[in-house]
Design a binder for these strands. Structure first.
Lengths: 155, 155
DNA sequence: AAAGATTGAAGACTCAATCTTC
DNA sequence: GAAGATTGAGTCTTCAATCTTT
């Protein structure tokens, strides 16, 4: 096919493998979390990122950036999380345009309950198959690509 | 948060970066293809993979494996591609259970038209930021993870 | 005008159920 | 019973339109 004809052979191989990871890894993590904790991978990220903030509270726009998602997507997800009582929206006192999400006690408990299984999955699917040196290589390479992706319009 | 507390610091860094890639890369490629060629990234893969087969024809189950997708997802996509006249379903003469997808002439043209822009995007978003050695590292690491992911139930 | 956020509609994906053939 | 495939329902995501505040 033409796709990869314009990449070198090495780039082709790398691209095929990366594409497989990008397609299958989210699906695998999704299944684990959905099955064991009835939440999506993205919901897990949102809860986890929020839990790291002071007062377990963040602006939605900040959260969207950290979660690598659009504000629209995040807003829909926050609505669902709010329905389940895991987060609460509140106005930002510093800027009347902004909204903050606050992790509730129930949300914290849900996160703590989900974490072990999720971390175990990440370890099993990713780090168990890597050699010690690979971890640094992966971090370096993924960081570079992620940085470039952050320069992209919309995100 | 607890997510990454049970990974080493290095693993944490690698995981954050990988997660960002996994979330943003598909979105970026998706936007490029949708904007320039009115097709999804996954549809592009399906067309490209089909185009590589003898007679530009493949079994759906084979195609699903190559495309890292479930048969259900693929079937839905083939239906859409068929509506646009880019592929045709046909029975497999060797196995009455099976269905084959055949790339049409229009499908081939659509693929050829989309390829340059897509390859350019892959190059810009991935390979332009990598050093020569990185490509081999990426291929090695992504291959290992992809292999593990293929052992997962469902896919 | 830009930034922060929300909403609804349309399209895509997942899951489970189902069907046919091996 | 397993493999190959399809379908429909429910859910999620994207995109564009909209609103308010800066």
């Amino acid at each position: 096919m033409d796709d990869v004809r314009w990449l070198t052979d090495d780039e082709q191989r790398a691209w095929r493998a990366l594409a497989a990871v990008v397609l299958r890894l989210p699906a695998a993590l999704e299944r684990q979390l959905q099955r064991d904790s009835q939440m999506s991978h993205f919901e897990y990220w949102v809860l986890a990122l929020t839990s790291e903030e002071p007062d377990r509270t963040v602006r939605l726009s900040t959260l969207a950036t950290h979660a690598n998602a659009s504000l629209s997507r995040l807003s829909h997800v926050i609505t669902r999380l709010e329905r389940r009582g895991w987060v609460k929206r509140e106005p930002d006192p510093d800027d009347a345009r902004a909204t903050r999400a606050r992790l509730t006690h129930a949300g914290w408990r849900a996160l703590v309950a989900a974490a072990p299984g999720h971390v175990e999955a990440v370890r099993r699917l990713v780090f168990d198959v890597l050699q010690p040196d690979d971890v640094a290589d992966l971090a370096r390479i993924a960081d570079r690509i992620a940085e470039r992706l952050r320069e992209e319009p919309s995100g």
